[in-house]
Nucleic acid binder design. Sequence first.
DNA 1: ATGGTTTTTACTGCGTC
DNA 2: GACGCGGTAAAAACCAT
Length: 342
Amino acid sequence: MSEKSSARQRASTTDEEQTSESSSGHRWQRQREQESTTESTSTEVQCPECSGNVITDTEHGETVCDDCGLVITEDSVDRGPEWRAFDSKEKDQKSRVGAPTTNTMHDKGLSTNIDWRDRDAYGNALSSNQRQKMQRLRKWNERFRTRDSKERNLKQALGEIDRMASAQGLPENVRETASVIYRRALDEDLLPGRSIEGVSTSCVYAAARMAGVPRSLDEIADVSRVPKSEIARTYRYIARELSLEVKPADPEQYVPRFGSELGLSDEAKLRARQLLQNAKEKGVHSGKSPVGLAAASVYAAALLTNEKTTQAAVSEVADISEVTIRNRYHELLEAEETVGIA
DNA sequence: ATGGTTTTTACTGCGTC
DNA sequence: GACGCGGTAAAAACCAT
């Protein structure tokens, strides 16, 4: 058992809960009393006997008439957890639902994991007899888990997705999305004729854009083993076939990242966004690369807020030539002026 | 394949520290 | 003289036709 899954296992056994519950029984008893005072709610329902107000008494699990005391329902089910958590750590310890299913594992994390360490649950070494048994179990578990080619395919692809996402510092939800996209691609038989690597790269690219933290094709290509052209081709194909709703990248989405990489103030970032919004209204941006626009706006904003940056530095973090930055930021400033300094 | 557009590369001149 | 910046021309990349 790996440490993670054994912890999960332990959390799901009932005796642990029972003991921790009884040891702190009086505490949560008191909590429940407080709860009941706050949660006794009167409803619109009327008592069938005296037409009085009916109240729900959560402490005793009864629905009772406030006037005549008639018990309308009893032994109602308390659907809340029977424990209280006072901080997130405690919640993690007490909760006994397992890990959430995740699409970043080829079997959604639902299958059994057998740890590679030859240790039992207490951390003691196993006897040689046991060790051999575990070896066999591991082997068959692995064979079972990655039964057919699709599963093996997925496993490899998800590994790649994870690797690239990490390299680009993309958050967990992007990996999740990328995994989902890949699954769909696999289900729709989009893979034949395309490399696993290429498709998974495209998935990461798409997922990053969908999550609003876009990476340029160049940046993605940097961490992939596939040439940019292939990524672009595959991405278009995937996006079309799965009809992914990926809006054209919004330059504004690049601003925070470029801004912080250059160590600019929030004010400058805000200014950059304003410039972009203005440019958008003027329609200056159509046809121009979003990254270039973003880079230019960041540079322009730095100038306007008197923060030191150079075109070279912006060009570095944005992967855009200085020339493009110059051209764009002129356009940005022009658009700004025609509006007039209101 | 082709033509039009955008981006990149490479180079040069200007002003400032 | 190095550096940041602006401009230009030609090449390359990209996109729709």
